[in-house]
């Protein structure tokens, strides 16, 4: 089977004040894929539509080759979704919630469920209403992971988790993709975590895909450039170059090394050009800021 884990093509959803798309996303199998973007970029809208929450106006969504509408039942059997809004309080206790959810999934892995309970320090007898926010998040992750889904989609799973819990969660996610077949799509604002744990990233801005690819290649592609210029050239609005700061003759810019911006700078009077590596977070801020102009 050569299907991608998730393949979104020309997806469009119109709202009165916001349009998502046309959006293309390609999530390879076996990857941890980080979906990032500023607030309101459309991440949750896109994720919700994969699971049939909201009808798209155009385009296709395929998960493991299955159409998200025509093959909805098969898709939901093989893919799991964890949202920060999930609420399991009506089952009272942790153990009861697990028994209830387990009943729906023939593929439920009992031993793995028990292992996750231990890893996440969850107690079957604990009342869900008394759980901390972090423990509730871990419970919803357990309920999704123990199904052994082929595709796991997580919307902001680490919001409000302390550093220890975050490491536990990412440790389990890395374990989940260990066989090279299972895939995790994770939307998050924790960019240092995404840079460390995600193999692939997609960045969405204003409902459109801005960048997608291997995390290391994307981070490696950009540099923070500092240069000086006394000849009055305006460096604004040049492809591959986003001006971040300027103090008279001294400039700071985000430079795309896949463009000809560097050689263009050299031939247009920029001197003392120095390039510095960026973190994913620096890159994100520079790209998100540009949107504000």
């Amino acid at each position: 089977m050569n299907h991608h884990a998730i393949e979104i093509r020309n997806l469009v959803k119109n709202y009165p004040a916001f349009t998502l798309g046309p959006l293309d996303l390609t999530v390879p199998r076996g990857a941890i894929y980080g979906l990032i973007g500023p607030n309101g970029a459309g991440k949750t809208t896109a994720i919700d539509m994969i699971f049939g929450m909201g009808r798209n106006d155009a385009g296709t969504i395929r998960v493991l080759g299955l159409d998200h509408r025509a093959d909805e039942v098969a898709l939901k059997r093989r893919a799991a979704y964890v949202s920060p809004d999930l609420n399991f309080q009506i089952w009272g206790k942790v153990g009861k919630a697990i028994r209830f959810v387990r009943g729906f999934y023939p593929g439920w892995d009992e031993a793995y469920g028990v292992e996750l309970m231990r890893a996440f320090q969850l107690d079957a007898g604990a009342k869900i209403v008394t759980l901390s926010f972090g423990a509730k998040t871990k419970l919803s992750l357990l309920l999704a992971l123990a199904r052994r889904p082929e595709v796991l989609i997580l919307d902001e799973p680490t919001t409000g988790l302390d550093a220890v819990s975050k490491q536990q969660v990412f440790g389990e996610l890395l374990k989940a993709v260990e066989d090279g077949e299972r895939t995790v799509l994770i939307s998050s604002h924790g960019l240092s975590d995404i840079e460390r744990f995600a193999d692939h990233i997609g960045m969405i801005k204003n409902g459109k895909l801005l960048l997608e690819g291997r995390t290391d290649e994307i981070v490696d592609r950009f540099r923070l450039a500092e240069f000086f210029s006394t000849n009055g050239t305006t460096f604004e609005n040049r492809a591959g170059l986003i001006i971040l700061k300027r103090n008279e003759n001294r400039w700071h810019a985000l430079l795309d090394q896949n463009s000809d911006a560097q050689s263009w700078l050299q031939t247009h009077g920029a001197t003392e050009i120095s390039l510095t590596r960026l973190t994913l977070e620096d890159l994100f801020v520079a790209l998100a800021r540009e949107e504000a102009k």
């Binding site: 076996g30 990857a31 941890i32 490491q167 990412f170 440790g171 890395l174 374990k175 993709v177 260990e178 066989d179 090279g180 460390r196 744990f197 995600a198 193999d199 692939h200 291997r214 995390t215 290391d216």
Partner: peptide, 17 residues
């Protein structure tokens, strides 16, 4: 590399590279 990624708590791509 998948086992090592899990041990080091880094992405699979990082170890692969």
């Amino acid at each position: 590399f998948r086992q090592f990624a899990e041990d080091l708590l880094v992405s699979v791509i990082t170890v692969k590279r």
